[in-house]
Simulated assay, not measured.
Amino acid sequence: MHVDNAIRSRKSVRRFLPLGISKPVIEHILQVASRAPSGNNLQPWHVHVLTGDAKQALCSDILESTALEAEGHDPEYQYYPNSWFEPYQSRRRASGFGLYEALGIDRNDLQARERQNLRNLHFFDAPIGLLISLDRRLNTGSYIDLGMFIQNIMLAARGQGLHTCPQAAFASYHQIVRRHVPLADEDILVCGIALGHEDRDAPENSLQTHREPVAAFTSFHGFKARAQGN
């Protein structure tokens, strides 16, 4: 797959088919992803790969904890701003409302919205769940490096005909995750990633989020104007 096609076809898939993925395929994806750049070649990422009973046990534990105590689950880093402002609030709302519309969920149906939100916590039925962590002793630059690594995972997955969904939701359950995988004390759980085969019949997978045109986020400096007709 051409890299342009991999980038353009990547999307957050929220329903997967019950088709397994072999360990060699996952190893290939991670090996390709590991070519991501990092400052001084620190390679600050760590990945825990879960499937089968191991994944089910983690997801069941998280869902049970959520049912018993909805509050009290907080990530160890702040992903979003404390107060929303434009243009980011409008983009956030458009994304959420677009998902609910695709699913036929009224935006005022809080119970249906919560049921959909809880599907995050079992990797949207994907056969593979990845948990991505970072050494907390590192600094902000390593988050940039980690982002490039995560993007590489998603693009390498497309090269194998697979899809993904990056999931910050798992960061809130780092205490439960530590019961199931040997996450080092110095590691901070950054996100999960669902990995599998897209269910193309699922309405939520038809969602295509809007992207701003290049002119909206780019300033060009020092370029000569093209001569007319060139």
Results as ranks from 00 to 15, higher is better:
V3C: 01
N5L: 12
I7P: 11
R8K: 11
S9V: 00
K11G: 02
R15W: 05
L19Q: 14
S22P: 01
H28R: 15
Q31W: 14
A33W: 09
A36H: 08
S38M: 02
G39C: 03
G39Y: 05
N41M: 02
L42E: 12
Q43Y: 01
P44R: 04
P44L: 07
W45G: 04
T51G: 02
T51Y: 13
A57Y: 04
C59Y: 02
S60I: 00
D61W: 00
L63C: 02
E64G: 15
E64P: 02
S65H: 13
A70P: 06
A70F: 13
G72Y: 11
H73M: 04
H73I: 01
D74T: 13
D74C: 05
P75M: 07
Q78S: 13
Q78F: 02
Y79F: 14
Y79R: 15
P81K: 03
P81V: 07
S83Y: 04
W84P: 07
P87V: 07
Y88K: 12
Y88W: 15
Q89F: 14
S90T: 15
R91D: 11
A94I: 12
F97N: 15
F97A: 15
G98D: 07
L99D: 12
A102P: 07
I105E: 06
R107G: 07
R107H: 14
Q111P: 02
Q111S: 14
A112C: 04
R119M: 11
L121R: 04
F124H: 06
P127N: 02
G129Y: 12
L131Y: 09
L131N: 08
L131V: 02
L134I: 13
R136F: 03
L138T: 13
L138Q: 11
N139Y: 10
N139C: 06
N139I: 01
T140W: 05
G141L: 09
S142H: 15
I144T: 13
L146W: 10
G147L: 00
M148E: 14
F149V: 01
I153L: 08
A157W: 03
Q160R: 11
G161Y: 03
C165Q: 05
C165E: 07
A169N: 10
Q175M: 04
R179Y: 10
V181W: 08
L183F: 09
D185V: 00
E186G: 00
D187G: 00
A194T: 00
E198T: 00
E198K: 06
P203G: 08
N205D: 03
L207M: 09
H210I: 02
H210C: 00
E212R: 12
E212Y: 14
P213Y: 07
P213I: 02
V214E: 13
T218R: 07
T218G: 13
T218N: 08
H221D: 08
F223Y: 15
F223K: 07
F223S: 14
R226I: 03
A227T: 04
Q228V: 08
N230L: 14
